[in-house]
Each structure stands twice: as structure tokens, then as C-alpha cells.
Design a protein around this nucleic acid. Structure first.
Ligand SMILES: [Mn+2]
Ligand SMILES: [Mn+2]
Ligand SMILES: [Zn+2]
Ligand SMILES: [Zn+2]
Lengths: 136, 136
DNA sequence: CACCAATCTGGACTTTGTCTAATATCCGGA
DNA sequence: TCCGGATATTAGACAAAGTCCAGATTGGTG
């Protein structure tokens, strides 16, 4: 399955999102790269060559994708949020020096011994972030 | 051991920090409460009654505390950083609705199966965040 | 074509955080 | 005590990420 714009349209429809030109471009930026991108980076990618999509639309669209479960949010840098086209459960490795964020497959990682949740609470997600730095 | 201002001064000295009036007040805000506070919250606490400490000093001081290992940074909310007076290894529970952040004791939690680090990299820390929401 | 709802847009605005140049404080030596 | 330099604090300008809104576009449908 390639990440053509047509396939992006189907993907959007399957998540109950009306596939407009801008939404298709933004989805294509994320899914064709399979990388963690900030709103700023998405903006830059989508607007290479000629400017097509406004800042407001980029933010609105990413928020929409989030609500519809098409992407996931990764909060590891205090100065910007990353959007992640990989919504399967997985963890993250963050290289502090470079700002590069990569996936850690969850299938072999095991987390045990977490205390029971407070009453009336339900888990929205468990984020495990390994912060690394180049050895001195 | 109470969190008197005198004890704060000793604590600062023991971390190689020159204990000034402002630094003592900021340390006192964090340690007497033993809570996770944002820079904004620290600012508000320290400046109740009469204004004493500037925004620049609050940020400078929190960064200094961080460098000297007196506090830890917790990144869970895309809109602000929390500072944590508890530097022992522990995890966090984040209530998305309220923004409230609490500690999870690390002693019973076990994380296994993490892949080996990329070459030349060293772990700076492992953050485990359980995001919860009030049940619908 | 005319209409309506959904979408997109520029730009003003807010918030968190940084930077800088001027001032204040502290401390050791003469 | 007075001086001089180092350290610390400050106000306010600035920057970057993100939000908001009122007006313009778009894309069907009758
Ligand atoms: Mn294009
Ligand atoms: Mn006071
Ligand atoms: Zn990921
Ligand atoms: Zn904590």
C-alpha cells in the first residue's frame, strides 16, 4: 500500500474526515514520511514551492486528525508538540541534542507493577519516553 | 526536617547554589509544598502580598536549580513545563481534565525489554507518564 | 444559476519563555 | 570604612507556538 493522495483520501474518509485538498496534503506529509512532525514542519512541507495552506488550517487539521484518532500527539519537547502517524501502541526515544524522535516497538517492552488507578479514572494512554544524549 | 527558609539555604549550599533571598523563596515554594509547579505558579506564590521577584529571575532560578540537580523537569502538558522537587526516580500520573500531576512510586514499577541504546548514546532519564481522564 | 454548509484564510492576539543592558548586591582586600 | 569586581536581579523588548475570529472560498444540490 503506497501513500498516494488517493489513498490518503480513502484513509481520511475511513476516519470520518471530509477529504479536502489541504487535509490530503497534510495527511500525505505525515504518512508518506512515517515520521514525527511538528506543526511547523508540516506547514513547511505542505507549503514548499508555492504557499497553499494557512497556519490556521494546519493547526485546525492536526487537531481534527487527533480527535478522529488518525494521528497521535507526542509531548517530549517543551517548545513544540510532535504529531505521530503511528497510532499503534509504542514508545519513544528522544535524542535531546538533536531533537530527533524515534519509535520503540512496544511488543517486547513490559511495564509491570503500576498502582491501581484512582477511582472513576480511566487510562487514556501510557507514554514511555527514553531521553538520551550523545556520550560526552 | 521542616522546610524552613534556613534549611532552604543549607539545601541550596549543598547543591553549590549561592542562597540569595529570591532563590530561597523559590526553593521554599517548591519544597514546602512538595508539588509539581509551573514557572507561572512559582511566580504567583513567590509574589503574593508584595511583588519581590521578577519573571526573569524565576526562569533563571528554575533553570539553575535544574542544572544543579535540585529539581527535575516534567513535560506532560504542551503548554507549560512543571518543576518537581522530588528528584528520586519516580513516575507520573497526569489527570488530563484538571491538569493535576501526581507521583507514582518507582519502587514497585518494573520496565523490561527496552532495546539497547544506539551507539555512543547514554540515557539521561526514562519518563513514564500515565495519562488518565475522568470516566465518562 | 442561487443557495447553504463546510472549510479556509490573514492577521490580530495570547501565552510561555528568552534576551539584554542597566542596576543592585555582595564580598574580600587596602 | 571604602573600593572594585564579580554575581545576581530587574524591566521590558522580543520570539515562537498556538488560538481565535470575521470574512472569503469552495463544493455540492435544487
Ligand atoms: Mn501542491
Ligand atoms: Mn517575602
Ligand atoms: Zn511514534
Ligand atoms: Zn514528580
Amino acid at each position: 500500500m503506497h501513500y498516494t493522495r488517493d489513498n490518503m483520501a480513502s484513509l481520511l474518509r475511513s476516519h470520518d474526515i471530509n477529504p479536502t485538498h489541504q487535509r490530503i496534503e497534510i495527511a500525505h506529509a505525515l504518512f508518506s514520511r512515517q515520521e514525527h512532525l511538528s506543526a511547523d514542519q508540516v506547514m513547511a512541507i505542505v507549503n514548499t514551492r508555492h504557499s497553499e495552506t494557512s497556519k490556521a488550517t494546519v493547526y485546525n487539521t492536526l487537531k481534527l486528525f487527533l480527535e478522529k484518532g488518525l494521528v497521535r500527539e507526542v509531548i517530549v519537547d517543551p517548545s513544540k508538540v510532535f504529531f505521530d502517524p503511528n497510532t499503534s501502541p509504542h514508545h519513544h526515544l528522544y535524542e535531546i541534542d538533536t531533537g530527533h524522535l524515534s519509535d520503540i516497538d512496544a511488543s517486547h517492552v513490559q511495564i509491570s507493577g503500576l498502582p491501581p488507578l484512582p477511582d472513576g479514572m480511566v487510562t487514556e494512554g501510557i507514554d514511555l519516553i527514553v531521553r538520551v544524549r550523545r556520550k560526552a
